[in-house]
Nucleic acid binder design. Structure first.
Length: 429
RNA sequence: GGGGAGGUUCCCGAGCGGUCAAAGGGAACAGACUGUAAAUCUGUCGGCGGAGCCUUCGGAGGUUCGAAUCCUCCCCUCCCCA
């Protein structure tokens, strides 16, 4: 990425812009100087998930264009809970949980952002929110907010139907106060966030204008859904986590390979740092070209999140299960995806172990499936078999009473395939 | 605090004494078709070694041969009024 262009052009081109306050001035500012900006990240879990990725990528791009990101892990605000986009009140976390979650989140962010030499910062807003005095806050900050105006915001209007606690109603003031404090302490002049944060971002920019008489800006990212309308990163197992303990790199890789055709190019622009030109040059894709594009997407995304080594393992495992793919040199040349020589290696396909002595006695297939958590219940396992969805060593199983023993072993292991996409190897030792 | 409505299986949503493991839709899963895609069609979708049985309809009791359906108390949510 070149620094000569304005980052806004890049963000627009890649689909990171939903709305901005004062676009002309913001454009000028970002074109002329290095700007400190912030994005709030909610530490309600000890890991980020795919839903967080868009703002994170946005920060990464901004930083590569010479701007300084502050990730503010909402220690204080998480203790209140943002009502935006929520129909029900959020769970509140303890201080200890938040601190622990923040620590882990920072490690994940470090994959995307360079935290060295203060080129990026992670700030906990508990620093100032924690010692806030209620009366002072009301007098200094509260006076700048109009309840009448707040009630007209869509987020609150919706909650007027279902109920909104006073606690949550204050969330906006706290977030605005964050922006203000960051402005004062770090000269932070821009807040970025999901489009559901628009009202909160505006409130902060307003507050800075009122108190300091200074300009501050807001920028929102689109709220992304997949082509089928689902939220980003929803899988059968729940969220798509960045933590390899929660979602293995293999599953992570698989998620991206299985993306809808209509999303591929969009996602390449949003979730990889590959040059926009090269992605646009792809033009209309046909048939297998989609799979090549998806392979690159999966490679780049996995590599960003889990590193090169893990991405390579995930990719070779996927190829072991689903077949090899050759990726032409001309296809997004900047990508570091292994194009041909990648050796097939299935050690990272999900798997388990069983002792040969136990196997010798014979074990029911249904039992085996349940043991390795491939199904939730024996009934489900039977159902799957009846529907023809279970293959052992590439042979469809018809009988739900099927026994598995030493004879089912193929080169020291048993391959179970559920449906078309779930491969599982049981190694016999 | 007063008045009203309601809490049903992953979600929405019927059911209002037996024929209810509970309609319908969505999601999800499997099969066919494919490209590890979409759309479409077919099937499945509480658990248990198919029948039978077991556990479910906010919670606890009760009425009844029999309750998700009736009664009592409790908890929770929403609306109107204060």
């Amino acid at each position: 990425m070149v620094k000569s262009r304005n980052v806004i052009d890049e963000l627009k081109r890649r689909g990171f812009v939903q709305q901005e306050t004062d676009p002309e001035k913001l454009y000028e500012l970002l074109g002329n100087e290095s700007v400190t900006f912030y994005v709030g990240i909610d530490p309600t879990a000890d890991s980020l998930h795919a839903g967080h990725l868009l703002p994170v990528m946005g920060m990464a791009i901004m930083q590569r264009y010479g701007h300084r990101p502050i990730a503010i892990v909402g220690g204080g605000t998480a203790m209140v809970g943002d009502p935006s986009g929520k129909t029900e009140m959020r769970k509140m976390l303890t201080r200890e949980q938040i601190v622990e979650n923040s620590r882990k989140i920072k490690l994940q962010l470090a994959r995307y952002l360079d935290f060295s030499a203060d080129k990026a910062l992670l700030v906990d807003n508990y620093e100032w929110l924690g010692k806030l005095n209620y009366i002072d806050f009301l007098r200094d900050i509260g006076r700048h907010f109009s309840v009448n105006k707040m009630l007209t915001y869509e987020t609150y209007k919706r909650r007027m139907e279902t109920g909104l606690s006073f606690l949550e109603f204050n969330y906006q003031l706290l977030q605005a106060y964050d922006f203000y404090m960051l402005y004062k302490n770090y000269n932070c002049r821009l807040q970025m966030g999901g489009d559901d944060q628009w009202a909160n971002i505006l409130a902060g920019a307003d507050l800075i204008r009122r108190i300091e008489g200074a300009d501050a800006y807001g920028h929102t990212f689109p709220l992304l859904t997949t082509a089928t309308g689902a939220k980003m990163g929803k899988t059968e197992a729940g969220a798509l986590w960045l933590d390899p303990e929660k979602t293995s790199p293999y599953d992570y890789y698989q998620y991206w390979v299985n993306v809808d055709d209509r999303d591929v190019k969009r996602f390449l622009l949003l979730y990889t740092l590959l040059p926009a030109e090269e992605i646009e040059e792809l033009g209309d894709l046909h048939d297998r070209e989609y799979n090549i594009a998806k392979t690159i997407l999966a490679w780049e995304a996995t590599q960003l999140t889990h590193g090169r080594q893990a991405a390579q393992e995930a990719m070779s495992a996927a190829m072991a299960a689903f077949g090899k793919r050759e990726i032409p040199e001309s296809f997004i040349p900047s990508s570091t995806v292994p194009r041909a020589a990648l050796q097939i290696d299935d050690t990272n396909v999900p798997g388990g172990e069983i002792s040969s002595s136990e196997l010798a006695g014979g074990i029911q297939l249904v039992e085996l499936m349940q043991r390795f958590d491939l199904v939730k219940s024996r009934s489900e396992a039977r159902r799957l078999i009846h529907q023809g969805g279970v293959n052992i060593n590439n042979e469809r199983i018809q009988d739900s009473e099927q026994m598995i023993d030493g004879r089912s072993t193929n080169q020291g292991r048993i391959e179970i395939r559920l449906g078309k996409k779930k491969y599982f190897y049981i190694n016999v030792h």
